[in-house]
Every structure is written in structure tokens, then in C-alpha cells.
Design a binder for these strands. Structure first.
Lengths: 282, 282
DNA sequence: ACATTAATAGTGTGATCACAGTTGACTTGT
DNA sequence: ACAAGTCAACTGTGATCACACTATTAATGT
């Protein structure tokens, strides 16, 4: 008899070290979902540079969690896959690294950053601090059209949730918030907030696929109501509650994970402050 | 090759089906801490890539306001000035653009973003929101050495102010705050905050040269006192007061400076109309 | 047999070149 | 003398190649 463990995938990586092995079944849904080809969005090629298109594509792929953490990302590989030269790809990757979306490790490896309890809590706190402030500062610029567009995104969100389309669910959720914050012209908040989304996206996607959507109370309608009433305090509360509700109990399970994992591996000692992967001993 | 996963334990059950079994290693908070790229603070690294050195140098130059807004920045010009090829320079510029430090205009022009009243107020609000939160979250990790280092930066700040050395004044001020926020390991706040510093830096420098240092009350000693007492509320208040006091009445003179900035740069090209980032599919 | 070493394929970095579009000083026309 | 038109130099973008280094595979030794 074999004991199976249902787990929430946080990250994957590869190595040749075979010490300390345990058997776990991996659900097929976790298999690496590589970039979908022929993404019909194709925001109008316009006159954008190739680097911009590559960047935008990889950006949405990461934000919506279409790229699994641990999946190998190489310049030449992406260039060949996307049918372009290596030049635009490396600039796009450099840009994504500056946005904290990917990590460029020193050993010629690129990966999506690993999620940890501390990092998750920090990301949530930063999102609440920035997004509630951005919402309040966007409030004076809200028009009826803005609210209408947010409502459209909200209905798209419900529809996506109804058919368990996590991809569209995440996209609609981000679009809902983005239209709110982008109402203020020349907002310096949006780039910072989207950097946070890029860091949370891959984890949210995996959490959704394993736990399912967790919105019991629709905070979006509360936010919309606060917008109509021009109620600053209600808006701030709604945004914070939206972020906290949709995420917190994922964070609670994350806590248990940390306990469950630190316990059996206590003999590994404290986590090293800074450790380099040592080259093969000569 | 073996694939490892970092997982969150959700549930366990038993069965006899052994299909689709894979070997994984469960190690909590495992971090492949290979040297990350771009440690922005310490640019004195010896084995860094050329692109990293260029990026770090331009980064501090912008943050301390050594590059005047409107000064022409070209890839080949910087490459020749720094004695390197154009390749590292363009990647460094791309990275700085992603950090909101510079603007890549559509008409083949690069510039430091111009300051406006709205943008300045947004930057101040974002700094307060992020930095006070980062300070509070760093508080549990503060040690005596941290406070000692911050005091050293504070004395350096006073010394720089005494001799009107705005360059060192700004550097010491940023270093003071950075050591505080960096006390929390793996802080995701620091990159976001430094992005804000990069946007405020050029303007602060110009304001200093035109108005002079404006610290009447030293909020840094209050912050240090709050750190020693582990007083969360006092720390938050001190940080916010520090940012607000040091900047606010600079903002009052912002109007005149804004005119002075936009006036001589009339032929710098129009603001890019389509500066928004490509939204994900909705 | 297993660990160690050598070899090979593959990686990011940096340099150089071609190209289309822009800039800005110069030429030209009146 | 002054404005409009012109052209050469310059710009960022993208492609291709060389190089040092790495990780994976294959060969080797004990």
C-alpha cells in the first residue's frame, strides 16, 4: 500500500542530487503548461518592436501563470519557439528580470522565483498598501464609463469562474483592478502594482488549480458601490478585503505547509543565509 | 535527472495504485541561492558582467541626480564614454527603463521623466505607503548592528549637510533607509522602493540645489529611537514624518520648478501617446 | 558496481554589422 | 534676408558570430 499526498505545488527544479527522497504522486494538471502558441489576442501588431511583443507576451504568460515555475527558460529556446532572433528575447528577459518577474541566476539559469511564506506575506502586504492607495487616488477620476468597464470585467470574471477557466478568471480579475487604478492619468502606481502581480501570478494560478476559486463574498460589488458613492473609506476597505479574502486562506494553508515541511527536515539545519551551489569538487 | 518540487501538504490518503509515481524531494524553504544578478547596492563587485556595472553606475547616477534631466542619453554615446561596446549599454538602459528610471520615447530618444505635480504627489504617497510598511515589517529583524550602521549613515548625512555636499547627503539618506528595509531578509519591498527613489532622485537633487536642505526636525533620531524601543506605531509615524517633512515644502516650490523644467525642453518631443502596457486578454 | 573524470553540447555575454527611420544642419530658391 | 526643402550623420533595432563558462552526457578508472 502506498500513501499518496495531495499537495500544492510551489515550485519545481531539477538537479542530480538524489539524497533524501520521498515518493509523491504528481497530479497531471501540474504538468508544465508551456506557452500556448497562437494566442489569438495579438493586440494588433501595430508598430511595436519585436522586443515589445515578446515582452508583452511573456509578461501575460507569467502573470496568468501559464509558465510553470521551474520550467527552463533559455534565450535561444524562446527565440526558436517564437520564431525570432535571440536579440529581442534577451532584452525582453532582461526587462522581465528588472520587473521581478523572473530571476536571472548567476549560473546561467533563469527561473520564476520560488514562493515562500515570508515572500507571500510580503507580497500581500505590499499589494494592500499600494493598491488601496492607488484606488483612493484614482477615485476622483472615476467616470461612469470606468465603472461600466469594471462591471464588464466583473461579469467576465463570474463567467470564467462558472466554467472553471482559471486563465480567464485571473485575466478578468487583473483587468478589473487595472481599469480602476489606470483611471488616474500618468499613474506611477500601476507599474509597481503590476510588478507585484507578476510575482503573485504563478502562485495564484497553481493555487487556483489545486484549491479552486475561493471568493465567497463578492468584494467587487462592494468596491463598485463605493466608487459610485465616492466613498473613500469604503473603497479602501473593499480593496483590502478583496485582496485579503481572495488570498488569505491560501496563505493559511501555506503556513501549515511550512510547518509540515520544516518538521521532517529538521536535520538539515537552519536555512543558510547565503549559499552558493558549489561546483563539483575537484 | 530528478525533478524536485516544493509542495504544500493538503491531504493524504492511501491506495495500492502505483501508476504515475515520481520521486520528489521535499525540502522546506529551499532556496537555490545562487548569486542573484544585480545586487544594486554593491556595485563594487569584481566578477560582475559589464552590463551589471554599467547598470549600477547609471543607477546611482540617476538616483543621486548626477544626470540632469534633459541631458541626452544615447547608447553609442554612453558606450564610448564608458569605454565599452554598445551591447551592455543598451541592456542597462532597457533595465533602467523597466525600473521607471528613464523613459524610452518612441522617437528614438531617451530621457529622464519630467516631474509634474501629480507625479510628485503620487511618488510621495507611494513612498509613504511602501516605506512605512517595509519599516514595520523589518522591525523584528533589527539588531544592534543594524542600528549602529544606520547611525553611521546618519552622522555621514549630517556631515554632508554641513558642507553642502548634496551628493553625499542624498547617498547617506538613501543608505539610512536602505539598511533599515534590507534588515528583513528577501524583502520584496526594496526593489519597489528603489524604483521610487530612482524617480524622485533627479528632482530631489535639483530641489536641493535650488532650495537647500530643509530638515529642521531630525526625524531620523526619532526613527532610531522607535527601533530601539520596538515601537511599531512610533516607527511608522517617524518614517512618514521623515518623508513628508523632507519633501513637502519642496513640493510647494514645485510649481516654479515645474515651469523651469518644462520650459527649456520644449522640443524634446511629445509625450508618447501609447505608453500603457499591453493588457492581458480580457 | 559506483564514483570520478573527460568530452560534448548548450548557455549567456559581448562585439560587430546592416537597416530603416529620425534629426538637424546645410543648401537652395525666392 | 528668410523660409522651405534636402541630404548626410546619427539613432535604436535586430541579426549573426566569437568566446568563456556551465551542465549534462559519455567514457574511464578503481
Amino acid at each position: 500500500m502506498i500513501t499518496y499526498v495531495q499537495v500544492l505545488l510551489l515550485s519545481t527544479w531539477s538537479t542530480t542530487d538524489t539524497s533524501d527522497l520521498k515518493a509523491v504522486q504528481i497530479r497531471p494538471a501540474w504538468r508544465a503548461q508551456v506557452l500556448k502558441e497562437a494566442d489569438p489576442t495579438s493586440e494588433a501588431l501595430e508598430d511595436a518592436t519585436i522586443q515589445q511583443r515578446i515582452h508583452g507576451r511573456l509578461r501575460t504568460d507569467i502573470m496568468l501563470g501559464r509558465i510553470a515555475p521551474g520550467e527552463p527558460l533559455t534565450i535561444r529556446g524562446l527565440a526558436e519557439k517564437l520564431g525570432v532572433s535571440a536579440m529581442p528575447v534577451r532584452e525582453a528577459l532582461r526587462r522581465l528580470a528588472a520587473e521581478q518577474a523572473i530571476e536571472l541566476l548567476g549560473n546561467r539559469r533563469v527561473r520564476i522565483p520560488i514562493m515562500s511564506v515570508n515572500r507571500f506575506e510580503d507580497l500581500l502586504a505590499a499589494r494592500i498598501a499600494l493598491e488601496s492607495e492607488a484606488a483612493v487616488r484614482a477615485l476622483p477620476h472615476i467616470t461612469a464609463e470606468t465603472i461600466a468597464e469594471m462591471e464588464r470585467h466583473d461579469t467576465a470574471l463570474d463567467a470564467a469562474m462558472a466554467r472553471n477557466d482559471y486563465d480567464q478568471w485571473l485575466a478578468a480579475n487583473f483587468a478589473f483592478h487595472r481599469t480602476l487604478y489606470a483611471a488616474r492619468p500618468d499613474s506611477i502606481f500601476l507599474p509597481l502594482i503590476e510588478s507585484l502581480w507578476l510575482q503573485v501570478g504563478p502562485f495564484l494560478r497553481m493555487a487556483l488549480e489545486n484549491v479552486g476559486p475561493s471568493y465567497t463574498v463578492d468584494r467587487h460589488v462592494e468596491a463598485l458601490q463605493a466608487l459610485r458613492e465616492r466613498n473613500v473609506m469604503a473603497l479602501r476597505i473593499a480593496i483590502e478585503a478583496d485582496l485579503r479574502d481572495g488570498i488569505t486562506h491560501l496563505g493559511q494553508r501555506l503556513m501549515r505547509l511550512d510547518e509540515a515541511l520544516t518538521l521532517p527536515a529538521k536535520h538539515q539545519g537552519r536555512r543558510p543565509k547565503s549559499r552558493k551551489i558549489s561546483p563539483p569538487p575537484a
